[in-house]
Write a protein that binds this DNA or RNA. Sequence first.
RNA 1: GCCCGUGUGGCGGAACUGGUAGACGCGCGCGACUCAAAAUCGCGUUCCUCCGGGAGUGGGGGUUCGAUUCCCUCCACGGGCACCA
Length: 861
Amino acid sequence: MDRYNVRESEARWQGVWEEAQSFQAEEDPAREKYYVLEMFPYPSGRIHMGHVRNYTIGDVIARYKRARGFNVLHPMGWDAFGLPAENAAIERKVHPRDWTLANIDTMRSQLKSMGLSLDWSREIATCLPDYYKEQQKLFLAFLAQGLAYRRRSWVNWDPVDQTVLANEQVIDGCGWRSGAPVERRQLRQWFFRITRYADELLSAIDGLERWPDKVRTMQRNWIGRSEGAEIRFRFDGSEEWVEVFSTRPDTLFGASFVALSPQHALTAALAENDPDLAKFVEDCAHLGTSEAAIEQAPKLGYDTGLKVLHPFLPEKRLPVYVANFVLVDYGSGAIFGCPAHDQRDMEFARKYDLPVLPVVAPDGQEAEERAAWLQNLAEAAPHAYDGPGRIVNSHFLDGLPIAEAKRQAVERLEQLGEAKARTQFRLRDWGISRQRYWGCPIPVVHCDTCGVVPVPEAELPVLLPDDIDLSAGGNALEHHPTWKHVTCPECGGAAIRDCDTMDTFVDSSWYFARFCSPRASDPVEPHAADYWLAVDQYIGGIEHAVLHLLYSRFFMRAMQDCGLIDLKEPFASLFTQGMVVHETYKDETGAWLSPDQVERKGETVTTLEGQPVTVGRIEKMSKSKRNVVDTDHIIQVYGADTARWFMLSDSPPERDLVWTEAGIEGAWRFLNRVWRLTLHPDAPLAEAGAPMPAGAEEGAAGTLLRQIHRTIDAITHDLERFHFNRSVARVHELVNAITALKEDTPAAAWVRRSGVETLVRLIAPMMPHLGEELWQALGGKGLLCDQPWPEAEASYLQDESITLAVQMNGKLRATIQVPSDADKSRTEELALADETVQRHLEGKAPRRVIVVPGRVVNIVI
RNA sequence: GCCCGUGUGGCGGAACUGGUAGACGCGCGCGACUCAAAAUCGCGUUCCUCCGGGAGUGGGGGUUCGAUUCCCUCCACGGGCACCA
């Protein structure tokens, strides 16, 4: 018997789709649109299994929605700027652009071999001037709106690589590439004013109903809104003061010190005349910023000798420290310390022997008990109390619950002119300057006379120079002999280009909008954006839960305020898929082995030479653990449809998927089974288009006919909810049922044909090549990818009789057949008539009978 | 420490708003076909059982006629955040 020739068939249908331009999207206001997008890849070199999973999921949705009649936009592009290209350039002595474009070529052909229903005519790459030119326009628009600005700020500085690092690039306090301890430095940097939208970005999360709760929670935490007050502490004998932010103004009477950040402006001023303080600040700058470093770092302080007045207690003086645990860029960079009710302040106070003054006590204590509790907290307890309770030792606040005390304390301070209520966010403005070559140039020049001058739009794009020496380290654009020297667009004098490039997260913050009009001579064309946006379904990894997804939400708002787009939320629905993971293997020496170096026979795993192998944990596929399965190899051997089918089977898409050889083999066997069932069935199929013969609705044929329609109904339901693994199970069931009907009657042949035709249409989004192959063989008209989704006929969705469970005291005792339209009393009658039920009743009457029609009967005895 | 998930056979997982737990697949076992193997097909496969049944969805408790599903509590694993005042 001949077999399905996967490679020949898949290549052929990919050619047919391309020839017919089947997936090119056209704006058509008469049709309802559907924009499906998977997070575009970084062109690292080759497609990996994570991509295969991501794009398979997206393609199922795209093809399904197409069949449902939507005008689908499903584009693809490349997130093509970034550090790896520079690293590769240094290691291999190639140009970052050449390396990147070669990778794109490789990966494009890999994606094409997957048979994805992509509109390749809209392909974009962020590293090409026609993309970054538009991004430079966006930057200038933001600049004009005050959404981009430059300021000195504290940054993570890698002293070896001589560049700023993003927080994500700092691992355990060290640069991720150089391994050198990161320093805190002040640099002049470009920022995007994301904090302008902090409140709006936070409150709009409530409206993102089709986003995973997890992502919504993470964004809420990241934005981190807290309400409190900015309070003035005046210096003793001076007109000066220091501003302090607190969310606990109710504990003001428990204050025993004020602490400034080592990077606070006042600290710097004091340090000028105090070498010891300067030394202390210097030491703090070298402390790690990693999680571990922070956890272990002791609280350190430096007593400035200065005193401030307590805002409520004129006679009280508080010492002013500089403390290493006070962050410069949160609140006002200074705090008041209330050791009794804040753990950090407690540690600090115990160390420097400062008073601990309890001002909150939990409810429900006896007087004596409370006195002892307060004394212990003041004198001995190592832990601060931050639980609920009532205010004590606090004059006019005494006896109030915390929330009320906060309100009254702020109110009183406001009357005194010593504070104002304030909402503080954790979210910071987005620093986008990178001292890197392979990124989008920032289109401004710096002129001694005119200051920062935007490059006129007519002169865009500011192109990256081709001739670049990356080997020197540091900022290559800075070191380029001529590139940065320009004349000022305003005064014509000598000026210097900004030599930083933009964070690559800028590139990915608006690419989905660019896909709507990828060749337009403006960033976006309003009619195209209005029609296609928002993205109806966005699909990608959870790792972008905050950064990329938050930046994109910011970008749409910023672009809207610049009059460039009419949209706030870019992604109406978000799906975050799990990773592809694989077993790990080690040989006797402890060296990692790749999957193709081991052989599995049942439970025993050996090397190909029969040497013992230790099977390790199942982990994310990574080069270092060598547990990577090559996508090209899989597609070569089994075909894209097999890989796609396996990706959709078993694991729900939001969970991790364990790649196994047995799993892909199983998918391969199933693919062939479907092919055989259609082209070489054991029992005959009716002719195409034959009318339904008598008897097709009765007996075994009728049962299959009803199952066919129930399957359509179930799979439709499942695909709408991303339950691909259940769809796969339903397809298996349908195939099993069609195979099982072996009767050689016209009725059976007709229903079998109906079953096979339906099967082919149902698998079309998941195994599109096999689908086309079988559709053609069955004599289907046109291309399967253009066929409408099958409709279940309501009249076939129900059997005449159903199997009902009969419980006695909640335990299953019997199942009975009842007509599907049986009412309660008829059902009860049938249940009580059952033999097993009668035996258990032992002649007695039931105490109660609960009948849930269509579900269950429970007899209580 | 705070927040959020997850926990079901040997394995991946299914079970709609509380209603037959284990669909479907993998693996395994037995059988058919074959000189043989592969491929394919059929049957079986939660555990215990005196074959009547009994137990069972991480542990314990609760609500209910009925709980994988709801509530409380504990345990384990995973993820996010974390000197954010």
